[in-house]
Amino acid sequence: MATEQETERGRFTITQSQRDRIARFVRKFRSNTKAMLGFSIVVLLVLVAIFAPIIAPYPIDATNIEDRSQAPSVEHPFGTDDLGRDIFSRVVMGSRISLYVGFGAISGALAVGAVVGVVAGYAGGLTDEILMRVMDAAMAFPPVLLALTLLVVLGPELSNVVIALAFVYTPYIARVSRSAALAERNEAYVEAAVARGESDSRIVFSEVFPNCMAPMLVQGSLNVSFAILAEASLSFLGLGAQPPRPSWGLMINTGRGFMETAPWMLLFPALAIGIAVVGFNMLGDGLRDVLDPKVEAIE
C-alpha cells in the first residue's frame, strides 16, 4: 500500500487498483487469526456498548441494601455489589465508559498527533526538531503519571480523562506518523507532486497523509487498549470516573475492599477490562501483520 502510486483523480473514484488493494487487505485480514479474533472482540464490545440499555436487566444506580453482596445467581449473573446493584448491568453499561474514553482519547491523539507527526516528518529540519523535541518531552513522563497530574489540574471528570489521555498519547501517534512521513517524503509521487507545483500543505495532507494511515491505524488501535487500561487505573485511583458511574476501574476499586467476602465485585469488571484490552491489542497486532509489507515479506 505504501508503495502504491496514486493520481489525484484516483482518490475520489474507486479504481481497479484500489479495489484490488481492498480485496487483498480483506483476504489477508481474514486469514489472520489474531486480527480476526481481535476484530470480533472489538465488534462485540461495540455492540454491547450500543445496546447496553437493552442488555442490562437492571437500572445501574438502583441501590437495594437488602440484596447487597449477593453471589452470582440466575437473577444476578455477576452477583450484586456492596449497595445491592446488579454487577452484570453495571459491567455492561461500563463498556460505554471504557469505549468512550478509549476511542475518544485516541481520536483526539490521532487528530493532533498525526498532523504534528506528518508535518514534522515531511518538513524536516528545524520544524521537525522543534515539534519532535516537544513530543519527546511529553513522552518522557510515564503515561499514567502524566494523566494523573493533568487530572489534578483539570478536576476529576470523565471528559477530562479523555482530554488528559488524548494529550498523553499524542506523542506516541506523532512519532509513528513522523517516521511514516519520513519514508514517504522520498517517494516518487511526492517528487511528482512537487514537480506539478502543488503547495506544501496540499502535498502533506492530500498526498503524504493518506499513505501514512496504516501505521497510525496500528498504533491507534494498540493505544485504545492502553487508554482503556489508563482510564481504569485513573478511576481506580479516584481521579477518573466518579461514583456512581459504572466505570470498570472504579468498580475494581470498590471491590478491592470486598476481595475475601465478595470476590465477584472485583472479578467481573477485571475480566471485562482484560477482554477489552486483549481485543484491541490483538486487533492492533493483527493489523500490523496485515498492513506491514515487511512482515509479509518474511512470511
Binding site: D61, A62, T63, I65, D82, L83, P243, P244, T254, G257
Partner: peptide, 13 residues
C-alpha cells in the same frame, strides 16, 4: 472514607 463514599452513592441515588 469508604463509608462516606458508600453513603454518598445512596444519597445521590
Amino acid at each position: 472514607y469508604p463509608t462516606q463514599v458508600q453513603a454518598a452513592e445512596v444519597i445521590a441515588a
